[in-house]
Design a protein around this nucleic acid. Structure first.
Length: 420
RNA sequence: GCGAUCGUAGCUCAGUUGGUUAGAGCGCCGGUUUGUGGUACCGGAGGUCGCGGGUUCGAACCCCGUCGAUCGCCCCA
């Protein structure tokens, strides 16, 4: 026999209760984004490689080692999207969506990153995503975060806190970065091996290193607050007071930095509280929703300076926190005890479904087992069809009085109009 | 890219210090009940023990390699 091909590493075949939880997350997101008047967009799964390399930053891990890139038949380098933001920014520029600014959009779908899979982390994973394009005022950040907070509540997720930071404007961020490099370079030999490397590539990340050798120095490291311009301070102040007014709980996270080059000003992550049930379910992954302001991104793609904010959340990670959604039982199960009544059974189940009730027909395998299966399925209402000696159709309904009456009525209807 | 653990039936797993024909539960298939009732009882099918080498009289078990999975590091959603 030929060998069965295996699934690609890091991909998932989502089924059963997991698929229900996944759908619950997406459906809830769709409902909430309408409340906030975010418009639906459907984006390509792949783009020219430069869309991502220019927007995200050549030196980031995502671009330098995690992209699924390939040459198409025309010799052009394409990449399976590792995130939504860059593609949405590209669409904003190439479709003239400036005319709709400020534009609030939402989308969801698969993303691809070549990483080692582990709990809550896959090579093909799925995100929900929300962006506000062409809005430079702190009110946009507040609205976006209020929606994220609202969504998590609608999903029933607790024990998660918004961690908030500001990276200042471009100049603030650069000055802070330079100061951090100076500070850590002086003690380079005492840092962890990872952080010695981060010093060159991504010095901001040393701040949230888990290594004790690094943590000794973090407390006295230069603070972003000392490098913020007055405007940047005022902006962050407006965001935080707006969140307070909107009833969104948050905590300041001075060392929170985001990995991608394009972030400015507001940066945030929703993270499970230490020791919470949510933290346990997520394994070593912590961030379930993250994002920030990316005022410089449009220019990196050759567009006019356009302020924007956005976030994305991992559907799989959210689905791990929403509890068991299970698959709902059928409203009605029709058990065909005599195959001679097959046509009647088909007519009845069709009528039941068209009346808006979920229904399943049990008509295969040993007739004696069919009723067993129906009972095991957990359905409250079971209709069995059989033929008494006269060969006519007879039925028995097991269920509440209300359902018995309803089924009798539907049965009568299916008899009089078999094509109903 | 690095590290740890683990691969036995469709699924979840047992399998003693290496020793006849590798087991259980669930699921699947069939049978039994002369029955408004049942999630019962009996039986059956299904396994190159991930794959390839090695050690041994003999390997699911020990050794090496390889593939895969899981979890962690890095990074991220």
């Amino acid at each position: 026999m030929a060998k069965t091909p295996q699934a690609i590493r890091g991909t998932q075949d989502i089924f059963g209760a997991d698929a229900e939880a996944f759908a619950f997350v997406v459906e809830t997101f769709e409902r909430v984004r309408r409340l906030y008047r975010f418009r639906r967009v459907v984006m390509p799964v792949f783009e020219k490689t430069e869309v991502f390399s220019r927007a995200i930053g050549e030196t980031t891990d995502v671009v330098s080692k995690e992209m699924y890139s390939f040459d198409d038949r025309g010799g052009e380098s394409l990449t399976l999207r590792p995130e939504f933001t860059a593609g949405i920014a590209r669409a904003f520029l190439s479709n003239g969506w400036q005319q709709h600014a400020p534009l609030k959009v939402a989308t969801h779908g698969p993303l691809f990153r070549y990483e080692r899979p582990q709990k809550g982390r896959y090579r093909q994973f799925h995100q929900i995503d929300a962006e506000i394009l062409g809005a430079g005022e702190p009110q946009a950040d507040v609205e976006l975060l209020a929606m994220a907070d609202h969504l998590l509540k609608e999903l029933g997720i607790t024990g998660v806190t918004l961690h908030l930071n500001t990276l200042g404007d471009g100049d603030s961020r650069e000055a802070w970065r330079a100061a951090l490099v100076d500070y850590f370079r002086a003690v380079k030999d005492e840092l962890s091996e990872d952080s010695q490397e981060r010093l060159e590539k991504n010095p901001l990340r040393i701040l949230d290193s888990k290594d004790r050798r690094d943590q000794r120095f973090v407390a006295d490291a230069p603070k972003i607050d000392d490098f913020l311009t007055d405007e940047a301070k005022a902006f962050f102040g407006a965001v935080t007071s707006g969140l307070d007014a909107a009833g969104v709980k948050w905590t300041r996270a001075e060392s929170l930095v985001r990995g991608l080059d394009y972030y400015r000003h507001t940066a945030f992550e929703f993270i499970p509280d230490e020791g919470s049930e949510a933290a346990g379910k997520l394994g070593s992954q912590s961030t379930i929703l993250g994002g920030g302001r990316y005022d410089g991104l449009m220019q990196s793609l050759g567009g006019a300076a356009t302020p924007a904010v956005g976030w994305a959340a991992g559907i799989e990670r959210l689905a791990m926190l929403v509890g068991d959604k299970g698959e709902p039982d059928a409203d009605v199960i029709v058990v065909l005890e005599d195959d001679a009544q097959m046509a009647s059974a088909q007519a009845l189940i069709s009528t039941i479904r068209k009346a808006g009730h979920s229904a399943e027909l049990m008509a295969t395998g040993s007739p004696r087992k069919r009723f067993d299966k129906a009972v095991k399925s957990g359905a409250e209402t079971i209709v069995s069809l059989f033929s008494p000696d006269d060969g006519c159709l007879a039925s028995r309904v097991r269920g509440s009085d209300e359902w018995q009456a309803r089924i009798e009525e539907l049965l009568a209807r299916s008899r009089t109009s078999p094509r109903a």
